[in-house]
Each structure stands twice: as C-alpha cells, then as structure tokens.
Design a protein around this nucleic acid. Structure first.
Lengths: 199, 199
DNA sequence: ATGGTTTTATGATCTTAATCATAAAAAAGT
DNA sequence: ACTTTTTTATGATTAAGATCATAAAACCAT
C-alpha cells in the first residue's frame, strides 16, 4: 500500500514474527500502521470454546488493522502470523502525518476501507442467510478475484487455502467444508486435483 | 452528517419514500449520497427463500450507502424505508466535490467508515461463532450505545426494535429470538415490560 | 367500533450442520 | 530415515435452531 522508500522515510521498521505469533490482540489499543512485507498475516477472533473466525488474510504489501487508527476504538480482532513473516510497523502519529502530506494515498486508504466494508457486508449476509455450499463459493470467488492475475491459468484459480481456513472464513466446521467441496465438485462448480481445489 | 444548509447549497433535494419503498437495490450503481431527514431506512439483503438480513438501520441525520461512492463497486444491499421517510439526496459528483472542499468532513466520513467496519467485524464474528443469546445481547448493546443518551433513563435502554428485526439483524428466526429473550430475562440480563425489552 | 394487520407467543416436529470417533495421506521437523 | 504434526477424509450420532402450526394480544386504518 505504501512504498518502501516512503515507509523508511517516515520512520517505519521491519519486524519479524514467527508462525503463530500475535502482532496484537483483540481489545488492545492501536498504536501502529502495519503492512506485510513477507509472509501471511490473518486477523481473527476466538470464541470461548476456541472456535476461530478469520476476518481476513493479508499477504505481500497489504496493510491491515488501520480502521482503529482513523476512529477511536480498540482492535475488534487479533493479528496472527500464519507463517514466518516480516511486517512494516509505523507509529500511528507518523502514519497519520504521512497521509496528511499525501492526500492521494489518503484517498486510496479510504477506498480500501470502503471495499473492505463491501466484503464484510457480503460475508455477514452470506453467513446469516446462505447454506454452506453457497458460502464456500463466495469465499473462493472473493479470493480468486483478489489473487494475482498471473497465477490464474486458463481462468482457473488454484485455492491455496486449507479446508480448515475455509471453515474459519465461513463459520463452518472443517468436516462440513470437506463434504461441501465434494458436492460442489460433483455439481461441476469446481474441481479437485491432488487434494487442491481449483475454481 | 452534513448540515442542511450545506446540503442545500451543494444541490441536495429532499425525497419522500413510503414505508416499504426501496431507495436503491442490491447490485445497482451508486449515484447519490443519502442522508435521513425524517423516518427510518434499513439496508438489507434477501436470500432466495426471502429470508432477510438487515445490514443496518439508519435514523435522523444518519447517512448510508456511501462506501460505493469511494470505491468502484455496486451496492451490496438494498435500501428500504421502514416507515414513511424523507431523505436528502445529493448527486455523487457534488458530494465528492463537497468533501474535497471540506477536508474536516471528509475525515469524519473516513472515521464513520472505520467505525462501521468495526461493527461489521464484530457482527460477522458473533454470527459465525456465538450462540443466539450472545448475539442478541451484542445487538442490544450496540443499539444502546448508539442511542440518544437522553432516552436512557437510569442506565436502562428501551429497545424499539421488534423481535423480527432483532432476528434479521442477528441471522436468527423470530421464534428463536422470542425464546432467547425470555431466557435472558430469567438470567437477569434484561427485562420485559409490556412486551418491550429493556437493557 | 370494527376489521385487518402486525407482533408476540408457545408447543411439536424436523433437518442440517455440529460433534464425535477414527484413520490415512501428506508435509514438516529433527 | 523416522517421528511428529497437519491436512484430508468418512461414517455414526447428536443437538440446536429452524420449521410448522396455531393463537392471542396489540396496533392501525377507516
């Protein structure tokens, strides 16, 4: 989202996180702007029984956790490294100062927020009114749409998400996802090769 | 959100809608900024079987449906009048021009977006991992928090939502909401007087 | 006042996804 | 190479909330 030179000039530092490590926790105060440099970060919630809901997965150059920097509230979810990762960290004040000096980038962030709101509106409606197969297709199409176009061969997108991750993104259980995917394959909505899902 | 004088100066008009009338439909292109003047507007989705999900309810002076004005996508939900209402309507271009000329208000919209994202993140996680009673309390507390402080007597908030609306906001069925509310009353989490819920 | 609509209410039954149990294949770590 | 962990897989059972049916109370319109 913000180029490396600008990040460095503004005072950002590159932090390393091990797989499974938390960058911040639900309920804590937002002090930094974060942007993935290497690896994968997920934002998630756990309920009392430990069931996970994944709010989003962020890869190379994607920023996350900005909303509480724009308004006064605490993180609604955790940020956790899915794999060993490197993440740019820029203090809140410096981030906001940078945006003031770069209105064009400020606009980009506004439209990113709007787009994320769009995605959340769709997912919450899906989860509350649609059945498993429908929900799974939505997520697959969302990830397909947001994937690197170069990785899509002959209009076929290879899903790099595990069945468990699909479950945690759709509010389903892993067994339900496995069974639904099989049904979707029978219906011709996707296909499976070497256990990988293609859509 | 935007004061009446500014709205009029920018070229907004006041439109009337009857109860049940749609202001716009899911999938259509956003051409206007909307702000409630009188009445109540809900944004919602219907699935194939007609089951409704209410994304949000907007009252006096609240704006809605702005996200697609900031990025390039179509409405993810409908806007429908809950009661006879009057709504300010300002063409997209004039709205964006107004924001450019008023950076302070632009900031307000950004933080409104951020806050709405916060609410959606909480609701989607609730709906996918929490049980009925928990979800209902969340919604009640959200509406309590966003209610006019003058209407709260001795820290007790009177819920003006119907059981059906609570159901459509939480992805539950009306019977489940009715039964859950009764249980919550037994547990002392809320009380019912003349069929109205107080929290 | 009266008839129609909406809202709240409650019991009975059903259905779907969750849960539980178990295991094999694949991937990762030492 | 071998052990451990993760991921995918499948069958059996359960439970929670949805669905169905019905009705009374409250509200609204004329």
């Amino acid at each position: 989202m913000i180029d490396h030179t600008s990040l460095l000039n503004s005072g950002a530092v590159l932090k390393k996180y091990k797989r499974g490590e938390f960058l911040f926790r639900e309920g804590s105060i937002a002090r930094y702007y974060y942007q993935v440099h290497q690896g994968e970060i997920k934002m998630n919630n756990y309920n009392q029984e430990g069931k996970e809901y994944i709010q989003g997965i962020f890869t190379k150059e994607k920023s996350f956790g900005e909303p509480p920097l724009f308004a006064d509230f605490k993180y609604p979810a955790n940020a956790e490294a899915i794999v060993d990762s490197e993440v740019w960290q820029l203090p809140k004040e410096k981030f906001l100062k940078f945006l003031e000096e770069n209105p064009d980038i400020h606009h980009k962030f506004t439209s990113t927020l709007a787009l994320r709101l769009y995605y959340k509106a769709i997912m919450v409606s899906e989860i509350s009114t649609q059945e498993p197969e429908h929900r799974i297709l939505r997520i697959l199409d969302y990830f397909k749409k947001n994937s690197d176009p170069n990785t899509i061969e002959s209009n076929t997108y290879k899903v790099e998400l595990t069945r468990q991750q699909l479950a945690d993104l759709t509010g389903l259980r892993v067994e339900t996802v496995i069974r639904s995917i099989k049904k979707l394959e029978q219906k011709g909505e996707l296909f499976i090769k070497d256990r990988k899902v293609y859509r």
